[in-house]
Design a protein around this nucleic acid. Structure first.
Length: 321
DNA sequence: AATTCCAGCAACCGCTCCGAA
DNA sequence: TTTCGGAGCGGTTGCTGGAAT
């Protein structure tokens, strides 16, 4: 059974030969792909258009990055996946030179297992807290003042302790994403428990209370300093000058201006223009960026029509949507 | 050395979305 | 408004090569 598009044609399936690759590359280099369904005929291939498209996108495209994933890329995948779920194409957009197929395979073959080994649910990224696991976790914490998981997905630096952010994931509803106030400084607000707070709120700074931490078993941890916050993109730090430091997680800011595929809805464009005019987006975490290097697919879940970040985390927002 | 097992990866399948007619 | 075809996406399959027995 072939594809719908080629059910009437006699097409070859399975692995591509170097000769076929060569024909496809030559054809696309000279003519572009145009309509994929016509590519095989024009290129002299006994393949269906769909197969040609996949071969080009996943293997033959000249801008593909080869080799294994870096730690930075791995962190990015985990981080974006936590927000977007199995939307591999969207995730791949944060990794220049990587394809959705590549990311998906890497997730299934590597990251998923790593997360499970850390006691994390790869779907929700929350702790798999069976009573036994909770017990083990608490024992580990009590056994060492400096609790640190092996190869944690993220870390959250406190004044003296480092805890896996994933372990704190259940605190999510209590922790807030940073936002920009009228003075162009980042604030984060109290309680995202609900959407009534979701419009243009600029609340007071908060600490993660000792009781919150204790509830998770972090009995020996000091309460998290106000300068440490978790955003929709994971954990980060507000440095002394109130600049957001994503702790190496840079994906929203790495998007290059060459991303000419970005298409904004008129409302989004207006929002971004407003942000630019009011200099809301400036040199955050040492990464200078503007609207053209920002991933709108990613931020639109956190961007209100008013053009102001709200304190609804992206997961909430996605669920809301 | 032969066989089995398994992880990683490339490719396929089937579905949805979107735009044109 | 409906239909149809192309493109894109996520899930799944199956092949391959290396490790284990």
């Amino acid at each position: 059974m072939g594809h719908h598009c080629c059910s009437k044609q006699k097409v070859k399936r399975g692995l591509w030969s170097p000769e076929e690759d060569d024909k496809l590359v030559k054809h696309i280099t000279v003519h572009g792909h145009g309509c994929w369904s016509s590519v095989p005929k024009l290129a002299g291939l006994q393949r269906c258009g769909k197969s040609c498209r996949l071969r080009w996108i996943n293997y033959l495209r000249p801008d593909l990055k080869r080799g294994s994933f870096t730690e930075q890329e791995e962190r990015t995948i985990i981080d974006v996946h936590r927000i977007l779920g199995n939307r591999w194409a969207q995730i791949a957009k944060h990794l220049p030179g990587r394809t959705d197929n590549e990311v998906k395979n890497f997730w299934n073959s590597c990251i998923k297992k790593k997360l499970i080994a850390q006691g994390l649910d790869p779907n929700t990224h929350n702790l798999l807290l069976s009573s036994n696991q909770t017990k083990v976790l608490k024992n580990n914490i009590n056994a060492s003042n400096s609790f640190q998981q092996e190869t944690p997905a993220f870390t959250m630096e406190t004044s003296s302790k480092t805890a896996s952010a994933s372990d704190l994931a259940t605190l999510l509803p209590r922790i807030n994403i940073p936002q920009y106030d009228h003075n162009n400084t980042i604030q984060y607000t109290g309680g995202s428990d609900q959407y009534q707070n979701s419009s243009m709120l600029l609340g007071t700074q908060q600490r993660i209370s000792q009781s919150d931490l204790s509830a998770l078993g972090f009995a020996n941890c000091s309460s998290v300093e106000s300068s440490n916050v978790m955003s929709s993109s994971g954990f980060g730090t507000l440095n002394e000058s109130c600049m957001w430091d994503a702790g190496g997680i840079e994906f929203p800011f790495e998007q290059q201006k060459t991303d000419d595929h970005i298409v904004m809805a008129p409302q989004q464009e207006q929002n971004i223009n407003e942000l630019n005019r009011s200099d809301h987006l400036q040199n955050v975490g040492g990464n200078t960026f503007d609207s053209t290097c920002f991933d709108f697919d990613f931020v639109d879940s956190a961007l209100l029509p008013s053009g102001v970040y709200c304190n609804v985390n992206s997961m909430d927002q996605l669920a809301w949507d």
